[in-house]
Amino acid sequence: MLRSIFAGLFAIVLTLGLGISSVSAKTVEVKLGTDAGMLAFEPSTVTISAGDTVKFVNNKLAPHNAVFDGHEELSHADLAF
Rank of each mutant, 00 (worst) to 15 (best):
F68D: 06
D52N: 04
G51M: 03
L74F: 09
H76V: 12
S75Q: 00
V57F: 01
S44E: 11
N59M: 07
D78W: 10
E72P: 02
P63E: 12
H76N: 15
A50Q: 11
T47W: 00
T45Q: 15
H76A: 14
L74I: 08
S44I: 07
T53F: 13
S44A: 14
F56Q: 01
A50E: 14
S44Y: 01
L61N: 15
T45V: 09
F68Y: 12
A62G: 15
D78L: 14
K60D: 15
A40M: 12
K60A: 15
V57Y: 07
T47V: 09
A80L: 07
L79S: 13
K55L: 14
A40F: 03
G70S: 08
E42V: 06
A80W: 08
I48C: 07
V46T: 07
K55D: 14
A50Y: 06
P43W: 00
V67N: 06
K60Y: 08
I48F: 02
A40E: 11
S44C: 07
S75A: 06
F68L: 01
T47R: 06
E73H: 10
A80D: 11
E42H: 07
D69N: 12
S75K: 01
D52Y: 05
L61A: 13
G51V: 05
A40P: 02
V67Q: 07
E73W: 02
N65V: 15
I48R: 03
A50W: 03
D52W: 06
H76F: 06
A62T: 13
A80H: 06
F41P: 00
E42P: 04
A62E: 15
N59E: 08
H64F: 11
F56W: 13
L61P: 00
G70P: 04
D52M: 02
H64L: 14
I48M: 08
F41N: 04
S44T: 09
A66Y: 09
T45I: 08
S75P: 00
A66D: 05
H76R: 11
D69K: 10
P63F: 12
S75C: 03
G70D: 05
S49R: 12
K55R: 14
F68E: 05
F41H: 02
A50M: 13
L79V: 01
E72C: 06
S49N: 14
H71D: 10
